[in-house]
Nucleic acid binder design. Structure first.
Lengths: 118, 118
DNA sequence: TTCCTATATATGGATATCCGCATATCCTAG
DNA sequence: CTAGGATATGCGGATATCCATATATAGGAA
């Protein structure tokens, strides 16, 4: 589904406020599931889910199912410039996900992660 | 017209193949005029002009008129993360503007730049 | 002024994007 | 199997984006 996407297309996928905040939150937390993102970003579940599908189809995110939850993380095969970009945006715009992160921390009953994978 | 644009909106402005190549060419050449970009990118003048207007309105580019020509350069007040991003994309995707640059070099009668400015 | 070159913009149509709502799928518990 | 929670997707409709074409504006030369 995603093999060698043009840089501009990857940028376009990042170039949406919700998707960008999603990426930065995941950059911070390593891994988040849909319900955590729904809570942190205060958006409807279908909306979050569709944006996550877009990010996955672009090759930016990778998903892993664990029980009822689906966890999303950055695709480890990401081109280096993408990571450089995300980190630069993160460092240059601390307020962008400040309240989102806060909501995430204050969220009760966050799903447990199994060391799993690989 | 452009005061403090959200990061996602800046990304969206960069997230178009033509506009991204335009930015990278200008990053390389410091300054280019519309006719040079029209030749390098092999696109119609109105199309180039409209994309340049978008880049200017986002605050990514700055223009300067010199005689009949209008030269575009990166806005010197650009947030650092934007420069980091452009450089990362440039370094990670050399082929992206390779033939554009070549066409630019082979273009005859490129307009002279006055040391002007300031 | 008139002509020519360089650049910008208006208009309208084709296409893409985004969202809300409803529904489907998948997994676990019982 | 049945029920319920978590996640994904289908279906319009509203909106935004993009382009080609035609036209307008600006500067320089005659």
């Amino acid at each position: 589904m995603q093999t060698l996407i043009a840089p501009a297309q990857l940028l376009k996928c990042m170039a949406d406020d919700l998707r960008l905040r999603t990426l930065l939150l995941i950059l911070n937390e390593k891994e988040l599931c849909v319900c955590e993102l729904t809570a942190a970003l205060e958006q409807s579940q279908p909306k979050i889910s569709r944006h996550l599908a877009q990010l996955r189809n672009c090759g930016l995110l990778q998903d892993r199912r664990q029980g009822q939850w689906v966890f999303y993380r950055l695709n480890p095969a990401l081109p280096e410039w993408v990571l450089t970009t995300l980190n630069a945006i993160h460092d240059g715009n601390q307020t962008l996900i400040a309240t989102d992160s806060e909501r995430l921390q204050q969220m009760g009953d966050r799903p447990e992660r199994a060391a799993a994978c690989c």
